[in-house]
Design a binder for these strands. Sequence first.
DNA 1: GGCCGCGTCTGACAAATGTCACGGTCGAAC
DNA 2: GTTCGACCGTGACATTTGTCAGACGCGGCC
Lengths: 201, 201
Amino acid sequence: MIRVVLAEDQGMVRGALASLLNLEPDIEVVGEAADGAEAAEVVARARPDIVLLDIEMPGTDGLAAAATITRRTPGCRVMILTTFGRPGYLRTAMEAGAVAFLVKDSPARELAAAIRRVHAGERVIDPGLAAAALSAGPNPLSGRERDVLSAAADGSTIGDIAERLHLSEGTVRNYLSSAIQKTHARNRIEAVQRARTQGWV
Amino acid sequence: MIRVVLAEDQGMVRGALASLLNLEPDIEVVGEAADGAEAAEVVARARPDIVLLDIEMPGTDGLAAAATITRRTPGCRVMILTTFGRPGYLRTAMEAGAVAFLVKDSPARELAAAIRRVHAGERVIDPGLAAAALSAGPNPLSGRERDVLSAAADGSTIGDIAERLHLSEGTVRNYLSSAIQKTHARNRIEAVQRARTQGWV
DNA sequence: GGCCGCGTCTGACAAATGTCACGGTCGAAC
DNA sequence: GTTCGACCGTGACATTTGTCAGACGCGGCC
């Protein structure tokens, strides 16, 4: 019996995935969580063979949870199941010790198959996605550039961002400018978009 | 037996929901679709009691599909199942003839319950969401303001938008300005955000 | 020790953005 | 028939944004 914990914030999707997996004779869902912090707790308690983590969750996200779990509960293999197959996500997931990376676009039957392969010791990663992640290269944005860019994402002005990050306005402008350059964008909005689709923020 | 068609673009979620519903003894999934156009076709062919539509789908979205289906296949009741409980979405869905509006955040068991209530002739709408939709009022943006705002969402400059919409730059600026006013925003980025969270674009 | 990248800041400049006032057309509503 | 709102445009203006050059301190690396 393969024991699985499921972490996914949308209740309906979580329940549906659980019923899908429980149909399989050799798979058993032994715990569920609605965010990353809860996932780490449940895994530490239930000691499953595999944890299936969504990335987009409130509070600590799936990538942070993956790092915590591989550190604190090394016996449990981490699989990522996400809506967005972004190169940066894949890279971060691998660095956090995940052994599989699935996107929700794939057919439902692939999920159980992937779980079995992971349980057998394999890694499961979409080849196209892996190629994209490698060809895209690592995240070119420095830490501060990421901060400023994500602070700008919600429509804040330079002044707002400066205040929130305790920086001068000129500094914020410079970081924003260099982030715009590095993303090959023409303005902050495009920069935010590009960074998002690459999984850099 | 309640015959249901399922429209949802993410294969894994679609499959999982299907298995969830097929567990119910009185519910049967008789068709699936991955986008709005396909949903309308499948419904016209399978003649189900109920169609469950996701909103965020490529091509024609769930709201457009809802309108098509209520017009072309009036015997089929339309239920909306979406990630985002935005007031404007609910309003549009109701105007398109939907009889239920569920968010994926809710627990999984509510789905089958809602389907049964709809089949019995009831409407199913989250009371809090209904209140929010009513208190938010109708979409204040004019057609052109919506066009310009959604064209601006991807980081295009005024010049880009003007060219794409065959308008002069001044006109684009004016529409953008009035959209900013109506959304009580301070710049186009905030305006796009506000409009999105309200479901106005 | 020297070099380099990162983070911090300043000042100045050009370009883009947001606002305002104004003038027009057209169709629907009163 | 007039009024009103949506639509399209112009020109001028203040503000914000993006760029550039330069300056400083810090920590890691050869």
